[in-house]
Simulated scan of single mutants.
Amino acid sequence: MRQTGIALAMQPGQRTEHVLPDALLDRLEQLGVLLDRNPLENFSDERARRILAETEILITGWGAPHVGADVLSAAKGMKLVAHAAGTVKGIIGEEVFRSGVQVTHAAEANAIPVAEFTLAAIVFAGKQVFRFRDYYTDDRNRERTYPMQRLAIGNYGRTVGIIGASRIGRRVIDLLKPFEFKILLFDPTLSASQCAELGVAKCDLDTLMRRSDIVSLHAPSLPSTRHMIDARKLAMMKDGATLINTARGAIIDEAALLTTLATGRIDAIIDVTDPEIPEASSAFYGLPNVFLTPHIAGAVGLERSRLGAMAVDEIERFLKGEPLLYALTLADLDRLA
């Protein structure tokens, strides 16, 4: 019996290291014929055409070339695309969905480290950890940190506002449940009863911005959410509140955010920006009330193996004739980050 041909397409090296370690490649070879352990970096050369002609399952990842009509033409037997990363936008074309080829993704696996990062950010924000750190290392004594301990800081009874009940937003809510936080949720797609089932209070965005001590963004980047957090919304935040963004930079009007941050009235923990890398002169780098990280909330290092494992698990289910757990449809594209 002819075994299923499996091909890889992603940018090898730094960005995808650990996604498919040898143990997962060995699993793939037990499930079918792994046509080449070295991933395709384009679909146009002779090697790519030869591999695609035998491909029934294509595993894509970060840096994969666009999978569109040309790939469908070259890989006439393709039945499944398993994306071993988060969003498929910009990688898997609409024509793939329309062709009947099934598509699955590992966004659920990428959501885990983002939610964990967010939990840590919330706890550190509530306790003013970064400010304690800065004062202590700058002064090398505790003249400023001792009085801070008497302030109304800490995480007991704090109100956390979650914007977006996405897969990451829901994971964050679950991670917060063992703590004694009050959790507000803004998500116009959910009813009050659905929010209650999640264990949170439904509220409108203005109310969330006014009442929250910590605001965490988990909405997708869509035309309707662009600059959703604007100057007016930022002005509603409490003095001393913290804004956390591990979603997408475009959700915030960053000019308005930087203006607000320059007053020192609020703090921010920012993992994503628009553009992806701020200009070297950006105030994000120098403001003392900003904790800036280079888009590391998602899977890095060994966490990436969870992405590959989820893709391989889906392939195994597919080959057994079982339903995919993380299948995507064309309709899903409009809601994805």
Score class of each variant (00 low, 15 high):
Ala84Arg: 02
Val123Arg: 07
Ala75Pro: 00
Leu58Ile: 11
Ile122Pro: 01
Arg27Thr: 11
Ile91Val: 15
Val129Ser: 02
Gly86Val: 06
Gly77Ser: 12
Leu52Asn: 05
Gln128Lys: 14
Leu25Thr: 12
Gln128His: 09
Asn141Cys: 10
Thr16Gln: 05
Lys127Arg: 14
Arg98Gln: 14
Val88Gln: 01
Trp62Val: 11
Leu72Arg: 05
Phe130Ile: 13
Lys76Gly: 12
Asp70Gly: 15
Ala64Asp: 02
Arg140Phe: 08
Ala85Ile: 04
Tyr136Arg: 12
Thr60Tyr: 06
Ala115Glu: 00
Val101Ala: 04
Ala109Ser: 07
Thr137Ile: 06
Val129Met: 04
Leu24Trp: 03
Val81Gln: 04
Val81Lys: 02
Ala48Glu: 02
His66Thr: 13
Val19Pro: 00
Ala48Pro: 01
Arg133Phe: 13
Leu31Ala: 04
Ala111Arg: 06
Ala85Pro: 00
Pro21Glu: 01
Arg47Ala: 13
Tyr136Glu: 13
Pro21Met: 02
Ala107Glu: 04
Thr87Val: 13
Glu116Tyr: 07
Val33Tyr: 14
Leu35Asn: 02
Arg27Glu: 14
Val88Ile: 14
Ala75Val: 00
Gln102His: 08
His83Val: 04
Leu80Ala: 03
Ala82Ile: 11
Asp26Met: 12
Ala23Cys: 12
Ala23Glu: 15
Asp70Thr: 14
Val33Ile: 15
Phe117Asp: 02
Pro113His: 06
Thr118Leu: 02
Ala82Asn: 13
Gln14Tyr: 14
Gly126Pro: 03
Asn42Glu: 14
Leu28Ser: 05
Glu29Phe: 08
Tyr135Trp: 11
Ile59Ala: 03
Val67Ser: 00
Ile59Ser: 03
Gln30Trp: 08
Val114Tyr: 04
Leu119Gly: 03
Ile57Ser: 06
Arg144Leu: 13
Gln102Arg: 15
Phe132Ile: 05
Ala82Leu: 11
Glu41Lys: 12
Glu94Ser: 09
Thr104Tyr: 12
Gly13His: 11
Leu20Ser: 02
Ala107Arg: 03
Gly126Lys: 06
His66Glu: 14
Gln30Leu: 12
Arg50Val: 11
Thr104Gly: 13
Ala75Leu: 00
Ile57His: 05
Phe43Ser: 02
Asp22Phe: 09
Ala107Met: 11
